[in-house]
Amino acid sequence: MEHVTQLLLILVILANLFVLGSHPLGACIRAVAFQGIALGLLPLSLHPEERSIHLFVIALGMVGLKGFVIPGLLFRAIRDAAIRKEQEPLIGFNTGLFLGAILVGLGFGIAGKLPLPPHTGSSMVVPVALSTVMMGLLVIVTRAKILSQALGYLILENGIYTFGLILAAGLPGLIEMGVLLDIFAGIFIMGTVIEHIHREFGSISAHKLVNLRE
């Protein structure tokens, strides 16, 4: 099952780079959805020996939530905001990609400082998780549209969740569910706020949101 985990982790990294490099917002949301699904399947491949129902339920919940429900929410927000055209990031694409590469390196650097926990599926999980977190932050920092900032937050959550997989056994189910619920509620409220901003400001570009300053 080692190579399946490697494949899924590579898929996660690719999804990140795709979001960083691509224009249309719809495509980005779909990429994040795929990333969610990949993460949903990851626990199955990481701990093949455990066939407990608890693991299946969590995986199913993750796939359902991250793959379909949250992207659905974001698509609805896009439809109301009637913005299809691509998003103009604050920095050019190649610089975005370049920074993305640097952050992957940074993630691996920090992971190198930390001793490898013995019973994790593969040594790749921690660096991938850290770099996904950093990429999520990068997306938030470099995007002009507040919707893509929400998207960046989602990538951040995915990164943290990949890290959570290492201790799938350790973390009791209730907490897992609580985390999922909170993330979902977070995205839901962000979606409603984005709608209000759209109605109030007539656009969801971050350039409008600067009149609270010293």
Binding site: V133, L137, I140, I146, Q149, Y153, L156, E157, I160, G186, I189, M190, V193, H196, I197, E200, L209, N211, L212
Partner: peptide, 18 residues
């Protein structure tokens, strides 16, 4: 203004909590 404040509060605190 309060909308903008709410958005910033949500974004920064969510990233922090993450």
């Amino acid at each position: 203004r309060s909308l903008e404040a709410t958005w910033k509060y949500l974004l920064i605190c969510s990233v922090g909590i993450a």
